[in-house]
Amino acid sequence: METTHFSSSLLEDKNEADASIQNKETTYFYRKKVDGANQETERNKGEASKIEVRGLNLKIKNKVILNDINVKIPRNKITIILGPSGCGKTTLMKSMNRLTELYPEMNVKGEIFIDGEEILNSRRDVTEIRKQMGLLSQRPYPLPMSIYKNVAYGLKISGRLKKRFLDKRVEHYLRQASLWNEVKDRLRDPASGLSIGQQQRLCLARGLAVDPDIILADEPTSALDPISSQEIEKKFVELKNNYTIVMVTHILRQAARIADYVVFMYLGEVIEQGPANEFFNNPKTEITKAYLKGSIN
């Protein structure tokens, strides 16, 4: 019941925003989105997965962190990367938007396709690739500016500078992250003054504002209290209609609650992947069974 209520209110929001976009000076934004959608469907006839990782190996010096990872992540679903701490889940996620480049000691080899397009060795501008994906990290890192500017940042660096447009979009994305009602009277306040739970939702809004198709979330609830965690989970369930969500977690119950598709990793290898039902009810390997029982963690 509750989820349907939420998603319907979200839909209203989106319709409102879209309508306002159509009659205002912002047709460019809308057109880009429609074009993008057309191209996507053309390019991906018969391709169900949004992200595909092929033969990904990652080493730090001589230590193998990821060993021959092959993963297919379905579009518009919540995919959970599950596994005990230190098994390479976060690293796998960071290679998806090439944040591994920040760590010179990491030696990455392999291929990652997004919508059938290779990104890891691509000559394409890495900022363009990263704009396809929003990132939520373990603990929120709001930018050192006001709440408003945090959300507007992504739009501003994409060259969207008109104030009326920004105002509307900021409100839209803050509503989408269910933060608007809490912050609408103090948009000019520093983001550092928000609670951790609010900061995480602000980071979600900020990520959505870049207009990605993918949301990467790295244990986004690990620093949050149970209620804020639930809000994030609920949000993800709503958002999966429009976004492909990849979430790293080591909390089994969280995975069971929201996953559509599960990738189970252990010691740098993918042990098992498949639809959530199958994974939880009918695990294939011994390691998975042991993990689900709780004897490995």
Partner: peptide
């Protein structure tokens, strides 16, 4: 983490340096 946050939004290095 703050660098990652900034880069993941698609900022370039100079935007990260001068704006964040």
């Amino acid at each position: 983490g703050l660098y990652e946050a900034s880069y993941s939004l698609g900022s370039t290095k100079s935007e990260t340096a001068f704006k964040v």
